[in-house]
Design a protein around this nucleic acid. Structure first.
Length: 283
DNA sequence: GTACAGGTTGGTT
DNA sequence: AACCAACCTGTA
């Protein structure tokens, strides 16, 4: 008989079931799987976790990681109440509607190096494909963190890896990008954790100087790995939404300017709301 | 079989 | 500065 899994509550984080699924498995992170019964299992850093919601929506976890680590990953300290309030005060009907549909959506605070690796893999791929690449990368180059579950490899490990190993991970043309970027980061002795502190423009510039990272991927890394809410990633969904709903010019730079003016310093959160609603065909 | 995807690159206008 | 094919792989 299996021992009963014990769960602890993570204070300060509540989700609706839809927002829970969307936050973990909607394109921010690529290591979470629905294991049935409304539970998710996944890996982040050297940790694994099994997550579920209590009846009142509170997040509960069973993990080798402690409360502090999970609180950081879910950015539990962020004041989403005032963030939502601020966004509502801007009188944008579209975002207001998205806020009602997704009242508990969050931006994850992932490890910046992991976000960097994952989003280099993401270009022109669907979520399921990205998840496959990231899992293969972990299995081929990462450390085992629990039975059959592997952590994403360190940047150094990728820099030192044979390109044939990366090719096995179904990365396609992204294999070279990833290897080159990892090599440059190592050579620069750059710690991706700095992306959380550097001025936004400088951080973005450094990322774009890497291979396989353009504006969109750089903004994803900054938003999902460094909690930089001024990042406004423009992918094909956002692009369509901005043209159709806000009549902006069909130009990513214009869209970012427009969004920053309209939504202020948390444009990235507005982006996630619009992105999610548009993708689900609700806008 | 072929078109194209949650994007970037390097070459061309 | 704006345009465009090519890139690898999986999916429709």
């Amino acid at each position: 008989m299996k021992p009963a899994v014990s769960y602890k509550k993570l204070p300060g984080v509540k989700f609706t079931p839809a927002d829970f699924a969307e936050t973990l498995d909607g394109g921010q992170a690529f290591r979470w799987d629905d294991v049935g019964g409304g539970e998710y299992f996944g890996a982040f850093g050297k940790n694994w976790a099994r997550l579920r919601l209590a009846c009142d929506g509170s997040l509960e976890y069973s993990s080798n990681a402690g409360a502090k680590v999970l609180a950081e990953y879910f950015d539990a300290a962020r004041d989403y109440e005032s963030l939502r309030k601020n966004l509502k005060s801007r009188g944008d009907g579209i975002v207001d509607r998205a806020l009602e549909i997704y009242p508990t959506l969050r931006i994850l605070r992932q490890n910046p190096a992991e976000a960097l690796i994952c989003f280099i893999c993401s270009s022109s791929k669907r979520i399921v494909q990205i998840k496959q690449c990231v899992r293969l990368l972990s299995e081929n180059l990462g450390d085992e963190i629990c039975d059959g579950v592997y952590a994403l490899p360190e940047i150094e490990r990728i820099a030192d890896a044979d390109i044939s190993v990366l090719r096995k991970c179904k990365l396609g043309f992204r294999a070279e990008y990833l290897k080159r970027s990892a090599a440059k980061i190592s050579a620069d002795k750059f710690d991706p954790m700095e992306l959380r502190e550097m001025p936004y423009a400088e951080a973005k510039k450094y990322l774009i100087g890497l291979s396989g990272i353009g504006e969109k991927v750089a903004d994803c890394i900054l938003l999902f790995g460094a909690s930089r809410f001024e990042a406004f990633p423009v992918d094909t969904w956002i692009r369509r939404a901005m043209v159709e709903l806000y009549s902006t010019p069909d130009n990513p730079a214009c869209m970012r300017d427009f969004a920053l003016k309209k939504f202020g310093p948390h444009a990235g959160f507005a982006q996630q709301l619009i992105f999610t609603a548009k993708r689900k065909n609700l806008l």
